[in-house]
Amino acid sequence: MKKKTIISSLLALGALMTIATGCSNSNASKSSSSEVSGKITAVGSTALQPLVEKAAGDFQKDNSKINITVQGGGSGTGLSQVQDGSVKIGNSDIFAEQKDGIDAKKLVDHKVAVVGMAPVVNKDAGVKNVTMDQLKQIFTGKITNWKDLGGKDEKITVVNRAEGSGTRATFESAVLNGEKAVKSQEQDSNGTVQKIVSTTPGAISYLAFSYINDKVEALSIDDVKPTDDNVSDNKWKIWSYEHMYTKGNPKDATEKFIKYMKSDDVQKKLVKDMGYISTNDMKVQKDAKGTVTDK
């Protein structure tokens, strides 16, 4: 008898769920007359996720008919899913043009923020400033000891970012000039990199500005400090956009939400809180090939 109860409850649950999906769908289609409504799913970059999530929460307070789901999964996932049409918005740290297998012409780019990145080292290394060339030599494996840069006699442990990630693509295009990075440790998240660099003597890696804290030492390059101001006029070269891609031009709810992302509410406040730089503050712009022009 027990068994039967279990099975019947399982069946009931199944039925319940079918109804639940049915209901939510019909609800969405019914109420489109009065104001803009709909269901938006945004998938992709984990770095951009907190910003979009928070913005979505605020946005929904005024637009209760619009239901927004924001998920991570990585830039690659975001781009491939928006291209397939499985999701409405694909969040990405990287230009669609830079990814193989993505037809960038079908996607529309909405740049919602700018992120600056800086090389960080363990405090032990005793180095605070490097030249761009030295940085390149570290990451290509030509300089292997901090004493060559005037620091401590300590081996350099390079911690790179995951192959194919937006952060790595940005860093390599700004620093390495097409040369290949030395084979080294790789990590894919800012949090882990920060933790590893702060605990491993002689470690070097790079982080988005918002993850730099007093546990690690951010390096200046050619005596330029990694600050938002220096990014905005391209004195600091290592920066990139955070993109939200849609397939074709956005419509209805998606359009409204993306407009909101670019509005002052988000750009002046949330973007700053997140440690990103507003696109409105930028004096220059960058294209997919990395060419920087005045705005």
Partner: peptide, 29 residues
Amino acid sequence: PFTETSFLNPMRPAETLAVHIWKVNTESV
């Protein structure tokens, strides 16, 4: 459980505690 906002709705996205720990450790600011 059939309404969008109900806590019992099985069709809503849900971050569990373990995922939260992961997220906080990896990408949280």
